[in-house]
Every structure is written in C-alpha cells, then in structure tokens.
Simulated assay, not measured.
Amino acid sequence: MPGLYLLAILVSAAGIAVIDARWRLAAFAAPVRTLAAVGIGVMFFLAWDAVGILTRAFIKGDSGLFIGIDLAPELPLEEPFFLAFLCYLGLVIYAGALRYIDSRTARSSTDGAVSGR
C-alpha cells in the first residue's frame, strides 16, 4: 500500500507532538529553538545520507510502502520526514529525561531538608 510508511511516520510524529504539548518539552516550550535543532539535524543526516549513497553504502531497496517519489537517486521522499521525526523524538526524549532528573533531584533535596539530613 503506497504511502503507508509516510503515514506511519506522520502518525508517530503526531503522537510525540501530543506528549510534547502535554509536558511542554520541546516545540511547545521553545518553538524557534526546536525548529532550528530539527532543521540542523535533518541537514546533517541528509549530508550523511548523501555520503552513504555516493559510496554505495546506502541503497533504497524496494518496498510497496513508499510513495514512489525519489528526491535523488536512492533517496525516497519519506527520508526527510523520517529524519525530522527522529530529530524531534530525540529532543522530546532528551527534554523529558532532563525534566525527570531535575524533579528527582529537587525531590531528594526537599526530602533531605525535611528529615534533617
């Protein structure tokens, strides 16, 4: 079914956006910074892909799940969407981990002050 891979990426990105919106971790906390980080990440990984394609380390392969549009030889349309999703997911996970660590640190310092340690 053509387009199923792109649909899966977009649905997954929407799920991560819901998590981001709920806890304001990345795009909903700092939209310009998030857009810049995702854009820089996508450009880096597209350059990485270009090197891999030129050295024949990366090949697209055949799948009925792709739309069938190539941006360049061996570079399907879905690739930049996947890379943007990957970068956004990384930012949300990183921000969530920092928030969790900060809350644990704050909780443990509060617990220590209350118990007299």
Rank of each mutant, 00 (worst) to 15 (best):
E78P: 09
R33P: 00
M43G: 15
F58E: 04
F66N: 05
V42Q: 03
W48M: 13
P73M: 12
L46Y: 04
V32N: 05
W23P: 05
A36T: 12
G64E: 13
L25V: 00
A50G: 15
L98K: 12
E74N: 12
F66S: 06
G64P: 09
I53E: 06
D70T: 13
Y100H: 13
A36H: 08
L98W: 13
L46M: 14
L46Q: 11
F81D: 02
V32Y: 07
L65A: 15
S63Q: 00
G52H: 06
L65Y: 07
A97R: 09
A47K: 06
D20Y: 02
A57E: 12
A95D: 04
I69S: 01
L46N: 01
A27E: 07
E79P: 12
L65P: 00
Y100C: 14
I67M: 13
A21C: 12
I53W: 05
F81I: 09
T34V: 05
A84R: 06
A37V: 12
L83N: 11
R99C: 04
D70P: 03
L89Q: 02
S63W: 00
R56Y: 07
A47T: 11
R56P: 01
A26M: 02
E78G: 10
F45T: 11
F45M: 13
K60W: 01
F81H: 05
E78L: 04
R24T: 07
A30C: 00
T55Y: 11
F82S: 06
Y88H: 04
P31R: 06
G68D: 10
E79G: 14
G61E: 04
